[in-house]
Simulated assay, not measured.
Amino acid sequence: MSADIIDIDVCGLEPPEPLERVLDALGRLQPGQRLRVLIPREPIPLYGILQRNGYQHETKSREDYLYEVLIWQ
């Protein structure tokens, strides 16, 4: 794991806790850091929030049916 990437796994959590955890982690990111989120469904509501707050993201679907979302500013 790279020091500039913060990993969080929100699998197994009931909504809205995954979104709350992601937003909390984003609030603690330092300049140059990125957040990598492991989530069991594509977080469509998150994308609008990220866009409105100046974040970029890249989402990939994994072979284990989970989604990995990389977020940066």
Rank of each mutant, 00 (worst) to 15 (best):
D7F: 06
D7N: 11
I8W: 03
I8N: 03
I8Y: 06
D9Q: 01
D9F: 07
D9N: 15
D9M: 07
V10R: 00
V10A: 05
V10N: 03
C11H: 11
C11A: 13
C11R: 15
C11K: 12
C11T: 11
C11G: 02
C11L: 10
G12T: 10
G12Q: 07
G12M: 08
G12C: 08
G12N: 15
L13M: 13
L13W: 03
L13G: 02
L13N: 00
E14F: 11
E14P: 06
E14Q: 10
E14R: 13
P15Q: 11
P15K: 08
P15N: 08
P15W: 03
P16Q: 11
P16N: 06
P16Y: 12
P16I: 07
E17N: 01
E17P: 01
P18Y: 09
P18E: 08
L19D: 03
L19P: 02
L19R: 14
L19S: 13
L19N: 05
L19A: 13
E20Q: 14
E20L: 13
R21L: 15
R21Y: 07
R21P: 02
R21C: 05
R21V: 00
R21T: 03
R21G: 02
V22Y: 11
V22P: 05
V22L: 10
V22A: 07
V22G: 00
L23E: 14
L23C: 15
L23A: 10
L23P: 00
L23I: 15
D24W: 10
D24C: 10
D24T: 09
D24G: 03
D24F: 13
A25T: 12
A25M: 10
L26W: 09
L26N: 10
L26C: 14
L26K: 12
L26E: 12
L26Y: 09
L26I: 14
G27L: 07
G27E: 13
G27Y: 09
G27M: 04
G27V: 03
G27H: 06
G27Q: 06
G27I: 04
R28I: 02
R28D: 15
R28M: 13
L29S: 12
L29Q: 09
L29E: 12
L29A: 10
Q30P: 00
P31R: 04
P31E: 14
G32L: 15
G32D: 06
G32V: 13
G32C: 13
Q33W: 01
Q33V: 04
Q33D: 05
R34Q: 14
R34K: 15
R34F: 01
R34C: 09
L35W: 14
L35N: 01
L35C: 11
L35V: 04
L35H: 04
L35Y: 11
L35E: 07
R36N: 09
R36W: 07
R36Q: 15
R36I: 00
R36C: 13
V37E: 01
V37S: 01
V37D: 03
L38N: 03
L38P: 00
L38M: 05
L38G: 01
L38F: 04
L38Y: 02
L38K: 12
L38Q: 04
L38V: 06
I39T: 06
I39P: 02
I39C: 05
I39F: 07
I39G: 01
I39A: 07
P40C: 09
P40F: 07
P40G: 08
P40T: 00
